[in-house]
Design a binder for these strands. Structure first.
Length: 617
DNA sequence: TGGGGTCCT
DNA sequence: AGGACCC
């Protein structure tokens, strides 16, 4: 399908239609000649969520753990030498005052993420409305990252010069803009053609959005603006918060989103490529020998700063998607890891627990999006291996009843208690999961270290789009019969109920679109030299027509704790504790030296970054 | 190295 | 079903 032509790498056929729409819309409206994309990244999302949930934590070092791993921590903790993805025990030795919160249950983070999405949607809807423009596409990448296509907003501002001028002239909303122009040697990286002004306008809009998110949810964010998703994302990571940057020539290939461990290894060992500039020496046909056609083409383009991946509007308000501000996931999963699980009773118990969580999310998903899953998958990992395996099958047919209400027990009595019904569903899923695992690993002995459940392949729940669904999660009606007795897995047969919804007549997902054979594009022409960057001074909103002067002042930068290098070293007692392996360089570091060591890494990283990014003159 | 996700082969 | 990528 032609839709995929300009998309690279990991662009998913599943959104091909949305991609077409995005492109067509852009062309049809004849908007600005170039895109302006913004990327927002919530600062240390899990840790910040915990601070917001418990304000007593603010100012203290906070880490979030999953199992024995500290998956993230706040900036206070980082300044004390605590590293993300270190072991909890190591982190506590480095920083005994660290507040460790368990983050294995993602529910709160999902909720926080939805609130952030909703706040952003509201902010951008308001801007668009005041400028008389259509919706701004907002795409959620993961829980804590969003892309926006601000092209139309910037074009709208440029069409209203007094407003735009007012926005720009008034001032200090945004910090300096860091851009790297094409070098004299002719290896221009990012096509930040022409005017800084539109870039600055985009930055101003982004600043407003950040402020609104902060006001509505309390979360601070970092942002980047660029001519593509790639550029915007790199920018948001380069200078935090809310400055603008574009990737430079010397950037390591691995800093490019989409080039991961395997690709970097291949580039390094086979082609001796470490930097983007070096990658640019190879043409697509040659790269294809190592990476396959599609990825080679993507690498070729990305090395030249070309990234046409559109922002797909997945974050709906009330409009397109249904579901308040939450994009539709294509799959939902739960998993848990553990030390050893060698008998079927244990497997069953664990799957029941997982299935309970999943069933609740499935019901909420059904209510939000009017759809149901057609397939389920069980994943498991055996001790000694790092790989996990999986088995996929249709959802048990009894689960057709999950989306109709009331559900009846064996005696034909309706189940009115939501939690009871959920137990039933969970039991059905879990028992089927056990069967699948059994089918996969047979009857011998086993030792599992991970179990997971996924549901996927959603289909619309069109027939009788149930009020029943909404009542499902509600507490039992006062007039209803007494709550059903606790239902055990045994009671799950559903008799006639199982056939309330017939099995899907059509395949659940459309056939995958095929990417057309795209010609390898020519490298971009070089951009003209950049002029000096304007500094923006004030809040955006005040310069929009008729916006009731809100407190939209820029959110303060997230408090960066004091310079780690100046901190006094740790308690001498720490000398008695064994050295800790640095997660970055793998060297053993004495506890007392950890903060200094971390500071060293930070300085190094910053120096490297500064090499990549050109500060405004 | 967790507990999620996406897409490609 | 597995592998790559992302956070």
């Amino acid at each position: 399908m032609a839709a995929s032509l300009g998309s690279q790498g990991r662009k998913r056929p599943a959104v091909a239609e949305a991609v077409v729409a995005a492109r067509a819309g852009k062309r049809a409206r004849g908007l600005g000649r170039r895109r302006l994309v913004a990327h927002l990244d919530v600062d240390c999302f899990y840790a910040q969520s915990e601070e917001i949930a418990d304000p007593a934590l603010v100012g203290k070092p906070v880490g979030v753990k999953q199992k024995y791993l500290l998956v993230t921590c706040n900036y206070v903790a980082r300044s004390m030498g605590v590293a993300k993805m270190s072991k909890v025990a190591d982190a506590l030795r480095i920083c005994p005052t660290l507040h460790v919160v368990n983050g294995e249950d993602l529910t709160r983070y999902r909720e926080a993420s939805a609130a952030i999405c909703a706040a952003l949607r509201t902010a951008l809807d308001s801007v668009a409305a005041r400028l008389g423009l259509a919706r701004v596409p907002v795409e959620k990448l993961v829980l804590d990252e969003l892309y926006m296509d601000l092209s139309s907003v910037v074009a709208g501002l440029e069409a209203a010069p007094q407003v735009a001028t007012s926005v720009l002239a008034a001032g200090a909303a945004v910090e300096a803009v860091h851009v790297l122009g094409p070098g004299p040697g002719g290896c221009g990286w990012v096509a930040l053609e022409s005017c800084d002004r539109s870039l600055a306008l985009a930055a101003a809009v982004l600043a407003m959005a950040r402020a609104d998110i902060k006001a509505a949810t309390g979360f601070t964010t970092s942002g980047g603006v660029g001519s593509s998703k790639l550029a915007a994302k790199l920018a948001s990571q380069a200078h935090k918060p809310a400055q603008l940057s574009a990737m430079g020539d010397a950037a390591l290939v691995h800093s490019v989103t989409g080039i991961g461990y395997a690709t970097r290894k291949m580039l390094r060992s086979e082609l001796s490529v470490e930097t983007v500039a070096e990658l640019r020496k190879f043409d697509a046909a040659f790269l294809a020998r190592f990476f396959g056609e599609a990825k080679a083409r993507w690498l070729y383009q990305v090395a030249r700063g070309v990234d046409n991946d559109p922002v797909v509007d997945t974050v709906a308000g009330d409009g397109g998607g249904g579901g308040n501000g939450v994009p539709r996931p294509k799959s939902m999963s739960v998993e848990d890891s553990f030390r050893g699980c060698s008998d079927w009773a244990n497997v069953s118990t664990r799957l029941h627990l997982l299935a309970g969580d999943l069933a609740a999310r499935m019901v909420a998903d059904a209510a939000a999006f009017s759809r149901r899953a057609c397939k389920m998958r069980v994943s498991f990992r055996s001790a000694g291996t790092r790989r996990s395996a999986s088995k996929t099958s249709a959802l048990p047919t009894e689960l057709g009843a999950m989306y109709t209400f009331p559900v009846r027990d064996d005696n034909g009595s309706p189940l009115t208690g939501a939690s009871s019904a959920l137990e039933v569903y969970a039991a059905v899923i879990a028992r089927h999961g056990v069967k699948l695992v059994k089918r996969a690993i047979g009857s011998g002995s086993f030792a599992l270290t991970l179990l997971g459940l996924t549901v996927l392949d959603f289909e619309p729940l069109s027939a009788t789009p149930s009020r029943a669904l909404t009542s499902f999660l509600a507490p039992p009606m006062p007039s209803a019969e007494p709550p059903a007795p606790s239902v055990r897995a045994k009671a799950v047969h559903f008799k006639g109920q199982a056939r309330l919804l017939p099995p899907p007549a059509a395949p659940c997902s459309p056939p995958r679109a095929k990417a057309g054979a795209a010609a390898v594009p020519k490298p971009l022409a070089h951009s003209p030299p950049l002029r000096s960057r304007p500094r923006l001074l004030t809040s955006f909103a005040a310069h929009l027509p008729s916006r009731p002067a809100p407190e939209l002042a820029l959110a303060p930068a997230p408090a960066l704790a004091s310079d780690p290098a100046t901190k006094s070293s740790a308690d001498p007692r720490d000398r008695s504790i064994g050295p800790i392996r640095c997660p970055d360089c793998k060297r053993a570091v004495a506890v007392a030296d950890v903060a200094a060591h971390a500071a060293m890494h930070e300085r190094k990283a910053k120096a490297t970054l500064d090499g990549f990014f050109c500060k405004p003159t």
